[in-house]
């Protein structure tokens, strides 16, 4: 049978994979993919908590997940627009070449 710990472990693994992708991709869109995976793992945790944890209003966890999805959509739209804008300026979206803000 499924229990909360199962869900949390899946979430943790998904999160660390997402983190690895977000920190290691060279392409900005790749970075964004990692971030989306991390957000997904957070949502998975929220849904898991909503399902298994005692709460006065259990549906709150799912509502929260809906909000996270909303914000993620907005974030993805802006981030991808940024990537396109940066590409127009520099003809690249490789983040290791976008390092103007250094010492």
């Amino acid at each position: 049978m499924i229990s909360l710990e199962h869900v949390l472990v899946v979430g943790a693994l998904l999160f660390s994979i997402g983190l690895f992708i977000a920190l290691s991709r060279r392409n900005a869109v790749g970075v964004l993919m990692g971030i989306e995976l991390m957000l997904n793992s957070v949502n998975l945790n929220l849904i898991g908590f909503a399902r298994f944890v005692e709460a006065p209003r259990p549906i709150d966890g799912q509502v929260f997940a809906v909000f996270v999805i909303t914000v993620a959509a907005a974030e993805a739209a802006v981030a991808l627009a940024l990537a396109v804008a940066v590409y127009r300026l520099r003809q690249t979206i490789d983040v290791d070449r976008l390092n103007l803000l250094k010492w």
Partner: peptide, 17 residues
């Protein structure tokens, strides 16, 4: 210490995590 500021946000992320 200023060499820590590489301009690479991914190193910042790695350090933060």
């Amino acid at each position: 210490l200023r060499y820590l500021q590489s301009g690479q946000f991914q190193t910042y992320g790695a350090l933060a995590f």
